[in-house]
């Protein structure tokens, strides 16, 4: 069985039932591929056993870069390259450099982290998502279990999902094209017939 193509999907209606389900399923030794939710569910990441987000570290180092760049820029411009006497003040007057240093720290921290987030999470204008169930961005929590990563059969997993109060469970297979959706194909599909591998039929 090829990996990342054959899944059993469980639909959950409530965040607390979902978290209990995740804990129970993982304790049974079943590996969960991913859970998709319409909103951030707190403690779900702990239940799934994810490591702490590394975004704060990224923000700190990007911010530090901003601080250093700002101090270097101001001292080099005002103190070294073209010193000017302004109100008889020192050429390099640190208190006057505080505001710009602060602003550049914030600017680089925010944008550095923002783009770090987009890149590490594979988010971009040309990305076409692989959608398990469209209700995941509406009102349901969708749990995907990869059949190739687990020894249990499809039917066993469905029984397990129902035992943890999943509303429904079904098998979901992706074709090669759906598995690696391309933006060009998405655009052409939308423009020619309005339907793509990741969208529903036009009304």
């Amino acid at each position: 069985m090829e990996s990342n193509k054959h899944f059993v999907v469980g639909i959950f209606n409530d965040q607390d039932i979902l978290i209990n389900a995740v804990k129970k399923i993982r304790s049974e030794g079943v590996k969960i591929h991913e859970v998709y939710s319409p909103y951030p569910v707190h403690h779900l990441e702990h239940a799934l056993g994810y490591k702490r987000s590394h975004m704060p570290v990224a923000a700190f180092f990007f911010g530090l870069t901003g601080t250093i760049l700002a101090i270097l820029m101001q001292t080099l411009m005002m103190g070294v390259d073209w010193p000017m006497i302004i109100g008889g003040k020192p050429f390099i007057s640190i208190p006057a450099f505080v505001p710009v240093t602060f602003e550049l720290t914030v600017l680089l921290a925010a944008y550095g982290m923002g783009f770090y987030f987009f890149i590490t999470q594979d988010l971009g204008p040309t990305r076409v998502p692989r959608i398990f169930d469209r209700r995941a961005t509406d009102d349901k929590h969708v749990m995907a279990i990869d059949l190739s990563e687990n020894t249990r059969s499809e039917d066993e997993l469905k029984v397990l999902l129902e035992s943890v109060e999943a509303e429904e469970s079904y098998r979901k297979d992706f074709t090669d094209e759906e598995n690696e959706p391309s933006f060009g194909k998405y655009l052409i599909d939308v423009l020619t017939n309005g339907v793509t591998s990741s969208s529903r039929q036009l009304n």
């Binding site: 951030p40 569910v41 990441e45 987000s53 988010l123 959608i131």
Partner: peptide, 19 residues
């Protein structure tokens, strides 16, 4: 941006929003 609501993305998203 191809956002799909996965728990991992939401976790990082929450962290980004807080920072």
């Amino acid at each position: 941006l191809g956002f799909d609501g996965s728990a991992k993305t939401w976790m990082h998203y929450e962290s980004v929003a807080l920072i």
